[in-house]
Amino acid sequence: MSDVTKEQLLDFYKTMLTIRKFEDKAAELFAAGRLPGFVHLYSGEEAVATGVCASLTNKDYITSTHRGHGHLIAKGGQVDKMMAELFAKVTGYCKGRGGSMHIADVDLGILGANGIVGAGQPIAVGAAFANQYLKNDAVSVCFFGDAASNRGTFHEALNLASVWKLPVIFVCENNRFGISMNQKDHMNIVDVSQRAISYGIPGITIDGNDVAAVYETAKDAISRARKGEGPSLIECKTWRHYGHFQGDAGLYKDAQEQEEWLKKDPILKLEDKLKVLKFAKDTELKEIQEQIQGQIDAAVAFAENSPEPSPEDVLADVYAP
């Protein structure tokens, strides 16, 4: 913990708050019927994406999930282009062709959010293979949920990554639910990190709501991968504040448990830490909050004022020339 500086913690705070405010706004817009499609919110899990991506550059790749907004923001995605994509506008990351579940920017190393649970796992392995083949010192990070570790893609991806000793870090965001199904009903182990044993790679379980812990753990795994020491699996225990998708009230969650986890909100935790360490006063945090709210509001205005894609372009980009 001691390695994390004031500047880093404040950076983490800004990133986490950007994610939270983006998601709060998306929830509000969706409830008001102003966003098409599906929206899966990352609120409550911000410390994971933020802590992991802090050690990545644009040369490093990530694969994301249907719950991808947080990963994209933490990896450097611009909130205006993301919001425009949620609105299906031509100024969005995918020109309005992908939507929330498919936002990507290969230049930023983002190989896409994904509408198929577990599909990012072999893709991240392939990007890691490219890094190894091209000897460019870059790594790949694969984000996925507890339920995605039940898929066959998980097994095949981790096995191949291990056999080929690839620079890839598998980050399991264990938010305890696969849609409505509690982890205790969808697997017979408590810690997903135990699955690493089957592949002969390191596996560790950490508090996914402690951004400093996520940062330190991921930094070590990323550094090992860069040195050619192979893949690892990090399980971050966390909690999704909302339901599976916006509109799911999450009635399958235990009310008391929900309340306890809300008290462990990663952003509240970080605010406490910043204040205890005297890195920031309430007034300074408030200033940051207002500044970020301004960015999110500007992103919504940008999205709303942007044109829709032209029907004449509907056939473009099916194939590369």
Partner: peptide, 22 residues
Amino acid sequence: LDTPISETAIVGHAVGAAAAGL
């Protein structure tokens, strides 16, 4: 490269490798 008997990883890794420049 020889792979395990693992078609999902064979085609899936190719997608990532191709998107990353190979």
